[in-house]
Design a protein around this nucleic acid. Structure first.
Length: 212
DNA sequence: ACATCGATGTGCT
DNA sequence: GCACATCGATGTG
């Protein structure tokens, strides 16, 4: 992990061009940064899930369902796909080329900068509860529907380079029980043993990551 | 570990 | 009109 600093370096746009399952893993250890009048909040991405498009029963783009909500998924990789569920906004990175509507859901962060701001936004919650869930992290970073469609290489919302985790765990995705066969696909990735992961679920496998 | 309830837009009919 | 959702907070055991 790097030292505490504020000179976040946005990833190059081409970072998002890799296949979606690779991207979901590659996002682990990068930093999600949000800039607001209140200040900067940022955290290491420690948990992601891949949503694989028209053939993935759990994806919003299943069977090419192209609506106002999913429209951005049909654009080029690198944009923010944000949608509302109940009272929460969930943040995804659009993956795949045009007309390849895939995305990576960011499910948990390890806070890195702006802890005090996150705490006020999260009310009474503290510790791991600040950002250990997809709805929690958007509230902590003030990511809202206003950020829908934003290109993630520049302020006020971007992905910055971070560190390369040594071990990544792989398992089933969360909260998609009503998705037929897709419930069992091992498309959830998290940094092994990171305390900010949203749910401690049985690990399907652990991969040692290569040094780049 | 499990249960329940909140609360709101979206997409379909 | 209406079912339902990539969830969270709080409660109990």
């Amino acid at each position: 992990m790097k030292d505490h600093q504020t000179d976040f370096q946005p990833v190059h746009r081409q970072f998002f061009s890799q296949p979606t399952l690779s991207l979901a893993k590659a996002l682990l250890g990068t930093v999600l940064v949000k800039v607001d009048p209140e200040g900067i909040t940022a955290g290491y991405i420690v948990e992601t899930e891949a949503y694989m498009g028209p053939d993935d029963q759990a994806a919003h783009s299943y069977q090419n369902r192209r609506t106002k909500r999913t429209e951005i998924m049909y654009h080029q990789y690198g944009f923010a796909y944000i949608y509302r569920m109940h009272t929460h906004c969930l943040f995804n990175v659009v993956s795949g080329g045009e007309d390849s509507p895939e995305a990576v859901l960011v499910r948990a962060l390890e806070p890195f900068e702006g802890l005090a701001i996150m705490q006020t936004r999260r009310g009474s919650q503290k510790g791991v509860d600040l950002t250990n869930g997809p709805g929690k992290l958007t509230k902590a970073l003030n990511i809202t529907m206003a950020d829908y469609g934003h290109l993630l290489t520049k302020s006020p919302l971007f992905i910055a380079t971070g560190y390369h985790p040594t071990r990544v765990s792989i398992g089933k995705r969360i909260g998609i029980e009503n998705s037929g066969e897709a419930v069992d696909y091992p498309w959830r990735f998290w940094i092994t043993d990171n305390p900010y992961v949203s749910r401690h679920q049985k690990t399907e496998s652990i991969e040692e990551q290569e040094r780049p």
